[in-house]
């Protein structure tokens, strides 16, 4: 009887020690949920949700501070994805800025005075230029966040919607009428 109790106690202590060690050794830094949410967000870093970037918005959602329907670039599809991820009900878009077609910024280079203000505003370093030198946008890296537009003192940046090309063309969803049997 005593032997059995001792054996059980020894096993309990041993397993407890293993669990305790594992808790320290495999400790997860930060909140993994934030990263999961961040992976779903479109990473435009535009701040149109009211938070200063995608990560802060993801953190706010994870903490339950922000709603899931505030991201305009993510659109309806993004809300569906977030709802799926978090096991929440889908909500129609409820942010301040309405979703727009994806666009890229274009600098009118003849008007650029080389003030570097847009470079400082760009969250993804997609603008090339130096002080008193013409600036230009690396279109392939531009997320279309529009953050460079307001700081420009000469209003030489415009947002141009991405046109459909053969490279990004998609087959359309087949639409045909179903006919009822007579």
């Amino acid at each position: 009887m005593l032997n059995a109790l001792l054996a059980m106690a020894a096993i309990a202590i041993l397993l407890g020690a293993v669990l305790g060690y594992a808790a320290i050794k495999f400790r997860v830094e930060g909140n993994p949920l934030v990263d999961k949410i961040d992976a779903v967000l479109p990473q435009t870093q535009c701040g149109q949700c009211g938070f200063p970037g995608c990560k802060p918005y993801a953190t706010a959602i994870a903490e339950g501070v922000a709603d899931i329907n505030l991201c305009p670039p993510g659109g309806d599809e993004g809300i569906h994805k977030l709802a799926d991820l978090l096991g929440m009900e889908y909500k129609p878009f409820g942010g301040a800025t309405q979703p727009k077609p994806k666009s890229v910024a274009i600098i009118d280079e003849s008007n650029c005075i080389g003030c570097t203000l847009c470079i400082q505003a760009c969250p993804v370093d997609a603008i090339v230029g130096a002080a008193k030198q013409m600036h230009t946008i690396i279109a392939s890296e531009c997320t279309g966040c529009e953050l460079c537009v307001p700081p420009c003192p000469v209003d030489c940046i415009s947002m141009v919607p991405i046109e459909e090309s053969i490279a990004n063309w998609k087959w359309k969803y087949p639409v045909y009428a179903l006919t009822a049997s007579k």
């Binding site: 970037g53 995608c54 370093d125 890296e141």
Partner: peptide, 16 residues
């Protein structure tokens, strides 16, 4: 493609 673009944007943003 958009996921790839988002990942690249995240990386660039974090680097910045």
């Amino acid at each position: 493609a958009s996921q790839k673009a988002a990942d690249a944007a995240r990386e660039r943003h974090e680097f910045r």
